[in-house]
Amino acid sequence: MQIKSIIVDDEKHGRENLAGLLESHCPEVILVGLANSVKSAIQLIKNEKPQLVFLDIEMPGENGFQLLEHFADINFEVIFVTAYDNYAIKAIRFSAADYILKPINFNELKTAVEKVTKRIQKKEENRQIRELNRNILQPDNPRIGLPTNDRIEFVEVKKIVHCKGESNYTHIYLHEKKHLLVAKTLVEFEDLLKEYSFVRTHKSHLVNLKHVVAYSKTDGGTLELSNSDKIFISRRRKDEVLQMLKTSIA
């Protein structure tokens, strides 16, 4: 299979390096153009109709995310390419979109291209990008992308009651007793969710404080949640959890 692609990056070395790596490691990727700004990329996408866009995020003028806002329907795949920007990487991970980091590791590049190729073959819609756009435009009620067995579920963050880590998987407990098993570590969820009033109460528990209905002192401290699950607070985290609970109620 051949994948018609373009690279968008304001830096010449960035474009050349990625083009070179694609040539030697991803022969299925056929480059039909390079763009050095969002403006030139829009024209290039309209003319060439690529299936895949390698998109740098930090660029002078409009950034990579803003490029997407120019298209009502995004009918191409996107692999974000970024050096270091916590805000942008967080937004991408939140929506479970595909990205690679600079300096590029060819193994990571190959994995990302394989994932996208599968979606193109199955003619699946790239919902991650749509959700990413939505989250950026409506930051008050974000939806998080949860990759389960064979698909990605998008769930409103406020509906997550708590998460439980088990090896490199995480159990996500939603209200109404719904439950998902996701192939990501608890640490990743802690990173993404801590700004939405989630707190680690124990080495393997992450709790949404908005769902706490009661705190009891039994067994050194337990939180009762809206789905009537009871979560244990470890001794070393007790002060911090209670402090956060106080501020979240206030």
Binding site: N168, L186, V187
Partner: peptide, 28 residues
């Protein structure tokens, strides 16, 4: 060179990211 540079970048990235954390997972 490519692989070592990836390790180098990965290490610096982790140190930068973990710098605000008191603790990390044993796996990290």
């Amino acid at each position: 060179a490519h692989l070592y540079l990836s390790d180098f970048a990965g290490l610096i990235r982790k140190v930068l990211n973990n710098s605000e954390k008191e603790e990390v997972s044993l796996a990290e």
